[in-house]
Design a protein around this nucleic acid. Structure first.
Lengths: 134, 134, 134, 134
DNA sequence: GTGGTCTAGACCACA
DNA sequence: GTGGTCTAGACCACC
């Protein structure tokens, strides 16, 4: 459970938190019913406002990735039914298009881009599909 | 010159405009010294606020992708020197990471992702590096 | 005496306990002067914190539904005088409105809703008024 | 578009707002692409904090009931695909059970309850199914 | 101790 | 003008 916040990147802090939690869940670093750090705890570690952590937790709870038991803490939810194939495909294509637009703007070729992806994937310690979390 | 605006996608409208112009330039659909539609014209076609189009043009002018001749209109600038390699790499990696986070969340594996990219690239009619435009 | 606890439903656990005890009393599954399981016992069965069970018992004692004999345990109280008609009506209307809001959100029609209620009531094995318990 | 806030009822304010907007949409009082009052406007009318209104709007946006265009305002989304029958049924049954528990506690009989519902439904000006909104 | 809600006020980006 | 994010600090209910 190591999170990194980059406040200057334009990506909202609460979203950086949700993304990293999702990735940790999908890769199995966080297992079902495992307890996450408390709101106050995590806010101190990341040096951000407790409300910001709470917002991240709340959103993931509504997405079904986490569940909270007041007085007890926040926990990883059991794996959920996979989302419809079509919706899943649409979401990844939308994200992919954003990358391709940037690649075109920067003058990257297909081969160079794929090479870059394969390199980055290794750093992610990820190459097999994990359980979808949202 | 066919642009598509999706107001609800979270990506600012002015940025959707700049992205699509950049892509058109990089892929040769817009050639140097070619004239773009006037602010008023384009705003009517896309059904968006003229200020938004003006902002997109201004930004691209500042980036050196376009130039304006007062009273004549806005034109595509000549190809520019490529940006520093390090900055270029950082920008594409940042965009790439956002895609990978989404892919992990949705449970895509490396192979499935790369396959998807190759398929999408064909639809983009793009596989060779073009001149960088910003 | 079979209780079901659903920790994730948003309804506080102590309230789920009081609700189910009240319902059991009102439907005659628990009779006056019958002894309830001890706090420790029930907390083990339901896998919840003993404090939570204690709170439920204390609350029902305060409401006059249960009484405790120190050293002996907790017992079902004799039936009490009904609460004022106006207060009773206000409480059920408040609960009813919450249901109706949900029904409207989900697009249920009046008929469909009432049909559902009649079906559910049968499963509750309840169709005659029982003595009010709180 | 008349909203009523009851701060003392225990139901969170932001949820009272979301409920009333949902009901208005489902009953057709708010039509697709209709603009809602701005965050600041509504917060002044209801005498609550702008953040609270914003939270209500944000949640409904994520549920797909509303959409926002930064700089323009918040609008009613087009009707969405209905949710799966099973999920819909589960949600209404869960809400229904909460009502039945209260009814049993207060000693209401089936007939009395249904009579009450039919009476309340008339005040809601609602008896036909409307489009589901969440 | 835990999470949940609300208020207040600031700053930014968008149109 | 609009919505979006973040901080600060308060209060409450729950366990």
């Amino acid at each position: 459970m190591e999170f990194t916040i980059t406040p200057t990147t334009g990506i909202p802090i609460y979203q950086q938190v949700t993304d990293q939690i999702c990735a940790a869940v999908a890769r199995g670093h966080l297992k079902p019913d495992e307890r996450l750090p408390s709101v106050r705890e995590l806010s101190q570690v990341l040096v951000i406002n407790p409300n910001t952590v709470a917002r991240a937790y709340t959103e993931l709870e509504r997405e079904g990735v986490l569940y909270s038991r007041p007085g007890m803490g926040v926990f990883v939810a059991a794996l959920r039914a996979p989302m419809p194939k079509k919706a899943r495909r649409e979401r990844i294509l939308s994200a992919l298009d954003r990358l391709l637009v940037e690649a075109v703007r920067l003058g990257f070729g297909t081969d160079e881009l794929i090479e870059l992806i394969e390199e980055r994937v290794k750093q992610f310690q990820w190459n097999q599909p994990a359980a979808p979390v949202s």
